[in-house]
């Protein structure tokens, strides 16, 4: 079947199968930052934004993005660099395999929540698994990133 949607700001027309998953579609279109860590929507590695909302692309049929705007980290490079640098400065990216999905949700959280506290941050990002870091460096990085303009004075 034919699918038309916007990927990282560009119009895309492509052929898909009825059972093609959004994850496999965006990877086939060169968005290789999107990873598969499980097949059961548990890990958060495949997070992309559809109409500005983070979704697990392993659990979304490609057909559902007909006419919609999809963003992967490839389309958010400047934000990724900025937020990612905070993670890197903690040494928190480690193997890096979960970083793109994690950063997608960090960016989504920043848009969705105003001045979240530590519990809200953890809650929002709970669906993003990481096996390397033990999560503490990610938390330090996210707090510093959210406070990058120094408003909290800490």
């Amino acid at each position: 079947m034919k699918l038309e949607f916007q990927l990282n700001g560009k119009a895309v027309q492509t052929e898909i199968q009825a059972d093609t998953l959004l994850l496999d579609l965006v990877r086939s279109l060169g968005c290789l930052s999107v990873k598969r860590g499980c097949e059961t929507s548990n890990c958060g590695l495949c997070t992309v934004m559809v109409e500005g909302k983070p979704v697990l692309s392993c659990s979304v049929l490609a057909a559902r993005v007909q006419g919609k705007r999809v963003f992967t980290l490839e389309g958010l490079q400047e934000e990724a660099e900025e937020a990612g640098r905070y993670l890197a400065q903690e040494g928190g990216e480690q193997c890096g395999y979960c970083s793109p999905g994690f950063l997608m949700n960090v960016l989504a959280m920043e848009r969705e929540l105003t001045d979240p506290d530590e519990d809200q941050i953890k809650e929002y990002l709970a669906g993003n698994l990481c096996r390397c870091s033990g999560y503490m460096s990610q938390l330090r990085a996210v707090k510093k990133y959210l406070n990058r303009k120094g408003e909290k004075g800490c």
Binding site: T72, L73, A80, E81, R85, E93, G96, S99
Partner: peptide, 8 residues
């Protein structure tokens, strides 16, 4: 390799 990894 940090920046390569975090930018996907």
């Amino acid at each position: 390799d940090a920046m390569a990894l975090v930018t996907g």
